[in-house]
Design a protein around this nucleic acid. Structure first.
Lengths: 342, 342
DNA sequence: CTGAAAGCGCTTACAG
DNA sequence: CTGAAAGCGCTTACAG
């Protein structure tokens, strides 16, 4: 730290000061920090030395203003503490950083109103792209994002906007597989457990599951309620088991729900999994592989989603166009479901 | 959307254009969006109408440049997908937003090198404050943050920097309580389980636990290894139980480790908790209350930490000074530990 | 209460 | 390769 820096106290040093110390123009300083700019090795080194001495850091606010590119990517998300979303957030934020972006997180909740406020902030900071993981934006504000040249990427939202990139998971196929596996395991009285939230993803899993069962002349008991959490699953398990005809297999639309179901069924009703009752989940959260659960489930294609998202963020704004891409959620076979007839 | 907005395509509207449409000066537009600025109700309304019509959003990049306050708060964090950190991130991001801040997440890992890159970005975006949840910053870069007038808040880092706000948890008290409870439950052969990561927090819990035991003339077996995860706990449980003198009580420095220990001990060695072996954890993650575990543990004071952090972020830069604050982690009594002698 | 003007810290044609 | 100048989109004294 130079004397000068110490005297300045609580202030950032500017390119101007660096230029003075290095004995060059402001332009030269700028070029020294712009990859590919035409500058001689010698002046670049002089600038770098002066910058290091003064503790100079390019002001990205000003740079963004000139370049019309802030370098910021916004993530609109709710329920960050949830296993699946926190994993997605982890992957996404790391990958975006590696691509040179700064990631801003907007903890928005699902309420459309909050999502709108989040998108507004996205516009305020001139984000290069915004990625919506939860909630559904108003059409009007979404359009403003697009018209401002912002890339808009919706993950598992199932709403279609023009010029928007949609990324989703093949819920239909997974749900059909779940139905098939339950039949193949010789289970006779399937049930579906979901939360009362009804996001597009959860509803798709439910509907395709019930439909697949119907094709095989089976009907399922449906339990829906509460938030998408362990406790709801526990309650579901408890209530289903006290029915006159309790189910012998459960497709829980989320692993968190599945864990709750398993615990209720085993601990309160002394049933064995998978013999008395089979359970299958969705997400493949860490806990699904814990030996207390060892849950058969479908794995969220987090890596594929992340890689594709980064590609979309990096595309030139001229190339922006509506697209939608679906990734498969592969089955993870574990022990919570009987494989064949008993 | 006005015709004009449609024609502009992929460009943000500026205060200039709003001023023209509203028939006022640029200054008036600025005042309309500055709480407390002196402006008549009438012109404010005219401006607001014009802004809405054009889809205007104040450019926070430019505003930050003038105000010398970006409104951005950075969170430097690793292992976002982990239950405790994702919860802290959830609380912190929400509270900071409610305080009017934009939160930037820097997924840094623990490596000092990465932390340095993260802090550099923090400076690039002229963040008002940066909060370090993981890893330890170099002194030099930390000083640059402070000298630039940035507030620097370290949570559970235990390193002391001048002018830095330190927030930590009373690990000593919790660890002593753990030792005391194990003795009171009549356990004779305690063990300590930790990861091989050795963060200041984990080490503090370990050292104070061992120290408290030593005061009571007890020694503990120590198992340390792997990342701070379920699998490490499972391995610890497995290896400890195959010892010639296996422990009858375990203080796992983290709930994730504790869950792993419990599963290994019960499923692979058919031991009962808490009768054959008592387990106590730390963090009170969601899974600790799941009925498969029902883990006695200490609750991370996430709300208190969050509230205090926001207060520190909001303090005037003139008031910045070193401080450190410790919050207690209250015991959550559940069933994984015997309460009294058998 | 209001507008003209200066300035925040950068980048980028434009000449040389 | 280099510098002087214009300009990005705002805010804030300064007069009126």
């Amino acid at each position: 730290m130079s004397e000068a820096a110490n005297r300045r106290q609580a202030t950032f040093v500017s390119a101007e000061e660096v230029a003075r110390l290095a004995g060059v123009s402001r332009s030269a300083v700028s070029r020294a920090f712009t990859p590919g700019a035409s500058i001689s090795v010698e002046t670049r080194q002089r600038v770098e030395a002066a910058a290091a001495q003064l503790g100079y850091h390019v002001n990205h606010l000003a740079r963004g203003l000139m370049r019309h590119e802030s370098g910021i990517v916004c993530l609109v998300v709710a329920d960050i503490h949830t296993p699946y979303l926190s994993r997605l957030l982890d992957y996404l934020s790391r990958a975006l950083q590696e691509a040179g972006k700064a990631v801003m997180v907007l903890n928005a909740g699902r309420a459309t109103k909050n999502v709108e406020a989040a998108l507004r902030q996205t516009l305020n900071y001139r984000a290069d792209a915004t990625i919506v993981l939860s909630g559904t934006p108003y059409r009007s504000i979404a359009r403003q994002c697009l018209e401002s040249g912002q890339r808009l990427i919706l993950i598992n939202r199932d709403d279609h906007f023009e010029q928007t990139v949609g990324i989703s998971v093949d819920h239909a196929k997974a749900a059909q597989t779940a139905a098939m596996l339950i039949r193949r395991g010789g289970y006779r009285r399937p049930a579906l457990v979901s939360s009362g939230i009804g996001t597009p993803s959860l509803n798709a899993r439910r509907d395709h599951f019930l439909e697949a069962l119907r094709m095989a002349d089976l009907t399922a008991q449906v339990w829906e309620g509460g938030p998408t959490a362990y406790q709801s699953g526990f309650q579901a398990g408890t209530e289903l088991m006290t029915l006159p005809e309790p189910p012998d297999a459960v497709f829980a639309v989320t692993d968190l729900l599945a864990c709750g179901v398993m615990d209720a069924v085993r601990q309160r009703f002394n049933k064995r999994v998978p013999d008395d009752i089979g359970v299958i989940g969705f997400d493949d959260i860490d806990q699904a592989s814990w030996s207390s659960y060892d849950l058969t489930t479908f794995s969220q294609p987090v890596e594929a989603i992340t890689a594709y998202t980064v590609r979309m963020v990096e595309q030139k704004s001229a190339e922006i166009q509506a697209s939608s891409r679906t990734f498969e959620a592969p089955l993870i076979w574990r022990s919570s479901l009987r494989a064949t007839l008993p």
